[in-house]
Design a protein around this nucleic acid. Sequence first.
DNA 1: TGAAGTTGTTATCCACTGATAACTAAGCAC
DNA 2: GTGCTTAGTTATCAGTGGATAACAACTTCA
Lengths: 182, 182
Amino acid sequence: MTRTRLTAQERHVQIVAAALQAFAGSGYAGTTTDQVARIAGVSQPYVIRLFGSKQELFLATTRYAGDRIEQKWRAAAREDPTLAGLGHAYKDLLAERELLFVLLHGFGAAADPVIGEAVRACYGNLYTVVRELTGATAEETRDFFAMGMLITVLGAMRVLGPDAVDQQPWMADLMSVMPPPD
Amino acid sequence: MTRTRLTAQERHVQIVAAALQAFAGSGYAGTTTDQVARIAGVSQPYVIRLFGSKQELFLATTRYAGDRIEQKWRAAAREDPTLAGLGHAYKDLLAERELLFVLLHGFGAAADPVIGEAVRACYGNLYTVVRELTGATAEETRDFFAMGMLITVLGAMRVLGPDAVDQQPWMADLMSVMPPPD
DNA sequence: TGAAGTTGTTATCCACTGATAACTAAGCAC
DNA sequence: GTGCTTAGTTATCAGTGGATAACAACTTCA
């Protein structure tokens, strides 16, 4: 007999996965809880019941993205505990771009005090983790994150990544000096 | 006799200024045309009539922000036509942070094809202008924009800038190596 | 001055969205 | 199998937000 229901915990992770996809596309304000529900395959009110509110759902999604990025960097550091090593992990992150985009949208929504606080905590944690893992200087780490932001933004703009649009001259020029797109 | 009405052109610029403020705070989806109208001191339907739709208003605002940044860089380049010279102009841009934030929100909303196209055009133009003004290499220009994105995002997160929140340890650490916050 | 064009408003609509409430049914213990 | 707990639904709502339409009032100009 196949079980037709999941535990609340299983639904939680499933819905966060759906929310990751949805929020990555249209951001906090631009995404409806119904979109998330549809992707997860449940009804919209159930999403609200499980998370309390749309904002809580977004916070959970943000935390998840932060945790997952940290996890990937820790894994990468076990192979090569340098900034270059972690930078290599950006390849994976661009494959799973929702993680970066959700954080980007979190930055945008940081005008909201609650979301802002969460996003700062998340970013601060990543910064600390990277320095700890690599032992890089503050300058080096700053540059690492700067390049990361550029990559993220170019991805969001569809200049970089799987669903990039037709290259304009300036894009080709810029791409020629971007870190390994391979 | 004092005129009590403005020309449509005057209203246009006034409303774009209001939209700049509003969109910079809460992004495309998160901002209502009524908020914009209130700031501009006109009725909400009039905003729509002048611009046709919310999307058109956002596009106009994006274009304005792009033009204004270009203008500032051109002015800065007349003094010092190097990346360092333009970087100095970031001081001004952080004072008028709405310009950067609107672009950041544009990146976030780039999943929409129309907005995406506009945002790519805007960014591409800025990239081209910077290279033209400074004669910098692609690598140097890339790093310049990477640092710019980091500054913008840190500003949006309230880590950097006038309305920055209480500094956490990692922030102080990062700030110590950020370009001239003077 | 009065007609025409322009600037602006109020009133209103309809679709949508987050949230609540009430109900249904699966799983599990005994 | 009976009853309790937990997973999930449908029905519904109150508020909002973008857009339209109809109207009012200022400006200009013959």
